[in-house]
Design a protein around this nucleic acid. Structure first.
Length: 202
DNA sequence: TATGAGATCAACT
DNA sequence: GTTGATCTCATAC
């Protein structure tokens, strides 16, 4: 099992440094969780970020200190989990988009109403439902229960690509994933010339 | 395999 | 009134 737990200070840096380092890290919420395999970076200078147009009741946590959870409702239905990054006031965050389910499988399957492990946490809304993340977690510190975060072991192979589901700044390659993972919400494009074993498959 | 509707809410025009 | 950091189910190719 992973050992080095991530403190709040881990998040007091550039969101673009932190995001790829989170790939391969272990995230637990309560007694369930797994390995982070997909994230996206959002900075307040980025038109796609919720904080781009300034502070609102919804995004207040993004403007606070780093190392806290920012949870928002997506499309009126789902919850999405972010980690606040950068020194306080930079209003940046990493959206957690997919987790490889490891711990508490039965509980996550019950919450999702599914048994297929590939569909348990492969997407921001799915992940939040499986981990039981709701608005109640908004503003909670990431180095205190119910959250547990452990650094990636070894050197996971990280791939980058454009973000998903946005229309503003859609060309920025600020989506990061674990190469070859079966648990991504969508496959990453494999650059020409690279062997297809990097591609997603069943 | 691909496209479309519906669910439903905060923020913006 | 419209849009969006989404997901599921239905129907069409």
């Amino acid at each position: 099992m992973p050992q080095r737990s991530l403190k709040r200070s881990f998040f007091a840096r550039s969101v673009h440094e932190i995001a790829p380092e989170l790939i391969g890290a272990t995230l637990l919420v309560g007694d369930v969780g797994g390995v982070i395999v997909e994230v996206e970076a959002y900075h307040h200078t980025d038109p796609a970020a919720h904080s781009f147009r300034g502070q609102t009741p919804r995004n207040t946590v993004m403007f606070g200190p780093p190392g806290y959870a920012y949870v928002y409702r997506s499309y009126g239905i789902h919850w999405c989990l972010n980690f606040v990054c950068e020194p306080a006031g930079q209003a940046s965050a990493v959206l957690i988009r997919a987790v490889e389910p490891i711990q508490g499988l039965a509980k996550m399957q019950r919450r999702r109403g599914l048994t297929d492990e590939r569909l348990l946490c492969s997407g921001p809304g799915r992940l939040a439902q499986a981990l039981g993340v709701t608005l109640a977690h908004n503003g909670l510190p990431l180095d205190r229960l119910p959250f547990e975060l452990y650094a990636a072991e070894g050197q996971p192979e990280v791939v980058a690509g454009v973000r998903i589901g946005i229309t503003k700044a859609a060309e920025l390659p600020w989506r990061y994933g674990l190469a070859g993972s079966k648990f991504l919400s969508k496959p990453f494009k494999v650059p020409a010339g690279i062997r297809p074993w990097l591609a997603q498959r069943d």
